[in-house]
Amino acid sequence: MNDRLSTLRLFVRAARVGNFSSAGRELGLSQPSASRLIATLEEEVGARLFSRTTRAVTLTEAGATYLMRVEAILAALDEADHEARGTGELRGSLRVGTSSSFVLREIIPRLPAFLKQHATLKIELVANDRYQDLVTEGIDVAFRFGPLPDSSAMARKIIHLPRILMASPDYLRERGTPTTPSDLAHHSVIIGPAHPSPTFSFRKDGRVTSVRVDSQLAITINEGATASAVAGLGIAASSENSARAELAAGQLVRVLPDWDFGSMEVNALFVGGKTIKPAARAFADFLLRELRPPRRELARFSGPPESVSVRPNQ
């Protein structure tokens, strides 16, 4: 392994994992060989790309800029190879970033069908309830919730997920069932990522009603908010999809079902400049087809998927 292209792939892996040994091992290299190749690359580039310590390596400012350019080049090469094959076969690796709830509830159940179509593709799911930095964490495609700020990166609108309120039957028996939004002021409302603000707004018959709720419990992961509602700790907000199983099992029931509580926009966010990795584009298209509502329900959502501009590190 001594060609420039292979060295660039090694550089990208080292930047992603923060370790020459791990990156080299993935590519069949010893740690000394990986370190030597990176040092040679730095000499050829004429800049120090990594800061080195005994425990890890981190990108320098020049290295971070170089990574963005190199990943765009490698993505363009992958695209060329993909088109040349003409078979639709996806190869290599795909790194997907999203929330823990979305990966558990929506991605993993659908993953067998996608992997069956692309048996030579390797997927790494990076799941947590904070926004991953797409560049420094090497995310090829990330799924984001809510409106996205303007920037130069590309995103694909996947779907709008209706937002609902829900509580356990035991909680509602003990505390009563709200019939209007103003009733929420007398309930314990769980604050979670689906609605982090204590002010809740509803729409009905063309009128907007807002209420400020009291919260004894706040939690940063959506699965935790759902579990807390099941445990009878209060009323929680979530997307309808994220609580489908608990609602079907009767562990949770909808609260204020006749009031429109809005929806959460889901976007697929890409890195790599104007060149999107073929596997990233294919996976976003796959989820779009899987999650798109039946034609009779399309009027509930705000139009077809579209490209928008967003920040690459959000």
Rank of each mutant, 00 (worst) to 15 (best):
217 L>G: 00
157 K>I: 11
221 I>L: 11
209 T>C: 07
202 F>R: 10
120 T>Q: 15
207 R>M: 13
157 K>D: 05
104 L>C: 07
169 P>M: 02
113 A>Y: 13
229 A>I: 06
226 T>L: 06
133 D>R: 05
115 L>I: 04
223 E>T: 14
244 R>C: 06
197 S>W: 08
231 A>R: 14
192 G>M: 05
106 E>Q: 14
133 D>E: 06
197 S>T: 10
220 T>W: 05
169 P>R: 02
238 S>M: 00
221 I>R: 14
138 G>A: 05
102 F>W: 06
152 S>M: 12
194 A>E: 05
168 S>C: 10
164 I>N: 00
145 F>A: 11
116 K>E: 07
203 R>K: 11
170 D>A: 14
218 A>R: 15
201 S>W: 05
159 I>E: 04
182 S>H: 13
202 F>T: 05
227 A>R: 15
121 L>Q: 07
115 L>D: 00
112 P>G: 07
113 A>T: 12
154 M>P: 00
172 L>R: 01
101 S>V: 14
133 D>V: 05
241 N>S: 12
133 D>I: 03
197 S>H: 13
197 S>N: 11
236 A>V: 10
237 A>C: 10
228 S>G: 15
108 I>K: 13
123 I>P: 01
238 S>H: 01
187 H>Y: 02
216 Q>K: 14
208 V>F: 12
187 H>V: 01
201 S>Q: 09
191 I>A: 13
168 S>T: 10
165 L>C: 03
117 Q>I: 04
98 T>P: 00
139 I>Y: 00
211 V>P: 12
229 A>E: 03
195 H>R: 14
215 S>D: 04
140 D>M: 05
98 T>C: 13
229 A>L: 08
236 A>P: 09
112 P>F: 07
200 F>R: 10
155 A>N: 12
138 G>L: 02
213 V>E: 00
123 I>F: 04
113 A>G: 10
162 P>F: 04
114 F>E: 02
113 A>S: 12
97 G>Y: 08
122 K>P: 04
160 H>G: 08
117 Q>N: 10
176 G>W: 01
98 T>F: 01
143 F>R: 02
